[in-house]
Design a protein around this nucleic acid. Structure first.
Lengths: 212, 212
DNA sequence: AATTGTGAATTGATTCACAGCT
DNA sequence: AGCTGTGAATCAATTCACAATT
């Protein structure tokens, strides 16, 4: 059994972008598995992922040697190694905070579970029951207790910009270590907390620069 | 009048990340404007934007010199210059394709208009009227005609992965030049088309690597 | 023959250090 | 005195080129 093997690896020094690309490779590998492909070259996999073959190989070597020279990579083995590295091997509980338009859409979106995430609960200042939704929607006061009781480490933040920092402080105090932030704010968090921000307006604005 | 001045500027060579950060600076400047601040130092603005002061200054110099040594930047002037650079000075029409959970949430989200974007229409294979929504929802067959008739250059793509590439091909053929892609796929597009992808599952996965 | 793995080279982005204005 | 603008230096990421392996 491999459990724990990768937790010994240096989690520093590996470019964040490489780790990000690992997820993309993983998705491509899933597609290959569905099509019963069992071996893939760095060239083919890189093409599917939209990167150069050398980059794919370099990314993988941060974690070890998984290919066979002259042959390529075993799809099944590589996929399960990446799952291991990304900690996808057990269902990770996640909370969602802020059940407005975007928040409730993400709850319905559902694509997360497939990737190993379970939205255990959602929180809102004035929780309204959402029709056709299995995730419990709870009042904000319950958040800290829930995080502690369920050892939740990840949160999706979909509150308005004005309350984002305050909510973040509460979450972090309760034990949240990683935040996927959709509110248009730069969050100030302690060293040990990781934030990934998705700013829809910024993405659009950025595109508009490129059209003539 | 400044119109057109920035269209002469080199659109190549400027790091994409700098352009991305311009949008972030713009948001911080808006907040300052609301608070009637009229001058800001690179140090203060950089702090608000979550970057180093030198980086902010370097980013700005790609587009010209906008500060006053010894004083700082004029909030109003800098903001309108950035708007100019980003092409925010006129309402940019955008279409949204794929009115599922995520798509309809984005339609309701509304934060786009404030940033200068107008979702002119949405398209879906089986369009259902969405209650309390002013954006017209039209059948896919009308998409190409609409893009051409209204000279739409930007699209938000929220269709399932399986149809993303096909829909993209149609959009590009009709004249779309920039795509904000929410479907979990690498889109293959011609050179002149820009794609920004937001992959929610990848963002979460990436975070999960960092929690111990 | 094919394809990985990887040091070295290159390219790109960030930060430093300070000259130049106001 | 204070703060911007920027060339030079540093740091990081990507790509090359080829040796190693099956």
């Amino acid at each position: 059994m491999l459990t724990g093997e990768f937790s010994q690896m240096p989690r520093i020094d590996i470019p964040r972008k490489s780790i990000y690309r690992l997820s993309i490779y993983q998705r491509c590998l899933s597609k290959l598995k569905e099509n019963d492909v069992d071996t893939v070259s760095s060239e083919a996999l890189a093409k599917a992922a939209g990167v150069k073959p050398t980059q794919l190989r370099k990314d993988l070597t941060y974690f070890g040697q998984f290919g066979t020279r002259g042959l390529g990579y075993n799809v099944e083995a590589l996929s399960s190694t990446i799952a291991q590295v990304l900690g996808q091997n057990h269902l990770q509980p996640v909370i969602l905070v802020g059940v407005g338009n975007l928040g409730s859409a993400l709850l319905r979106y559902g694509g997360f579970r497939k990737e190993g995430f379970e939205v255990a609960a959602a929180f809102d200042l004035s929780p309204r029951p959402q029709i056709g939704l299995s995730t419990p929607i709870l009042p904000m006061q319950d958040m800290a207790g829930f995080i502690e009781a369920n050892q939740v480490k990840m949160a999706i933040l979909t509150v308005p910009a004005s309350s984002a920092q305050a909510v973040t402080n509460q979450m972090v105090a309760a034990g949240i270590q990683a935040i996927l932030n959709f509110s248009p704010t730069i969050l100030d968090v302690p060293e040990h907390v990781v934030v990934n921000s998705v700013d829809l307006a910024v993405e659009l604005e950025n595109l508009s620069y490129f059209i003539r």
